[in-house]
């Protein structure tokens, strides 16, 4: 069986790690996504940026991995910034009342430059 449709990019830009998932983050893919987020936290940079511009779809298992990631960054006194969400993905955060819990910006550049 296929393991899902998610591909994940990972790079360091200055003092930030930028994680770039591409595809869908559903029930099957959330585990893979979590592994990459853990890797980003292991880099111990002051901020982790997750660029969701190429994520077509996300459900609550995907959202849960980001909540878990947020908790890790808060404990480590670093920051998790989400960016590039399309309207459908952003709507999930709004329904879950998480749009005010996460730091969210339109682009990676703004996430990295955010004071």
């Amino acid at each position: 069986m296929a393991d899902g449709t998610l591909q994940v990019g990972f790079e360091t830009q200055g003092s930030a790690v930028v994680v770039t998932p591409q595809g869908e983050i559903g029930y099957s893919e959330a585990t893979v996504f979590r592994t990459w987020l853990r890797k980003a936290h292991d880099a111990k940079t002051p901020r982790v940026v997750v660029d969701l511009a190429k994520v077509d779809y996300m459900n609550t298992p995907g959202v849960a991995t980001l909540v878990e990631s947020l908790q890790i960054t808060k404990k480590a006194k670093s920051r998790l910034i989400l960016c590039g969400m399309n309207e459908k993905v952003f709507a999930i955060f709004k329904i879950a009342r998480l749009d005010t819990v996460f730091e969210i910006t339109p682009t990676v550049a703004e996430a990295i430059a955010k004071p």
């Binding site: 960016c83 996460f102 969210i104």
Partner: peptide, 13 residues
């Protein structure tokens, strides 16, 4: 229908 608020934007924090 749970639509995002008009003009709500995607910047916060």
């Amino acid at each position: 229908c749970r639509l995002p608020d008009a003009g709500g934007g995607q910047t916060n924090g």
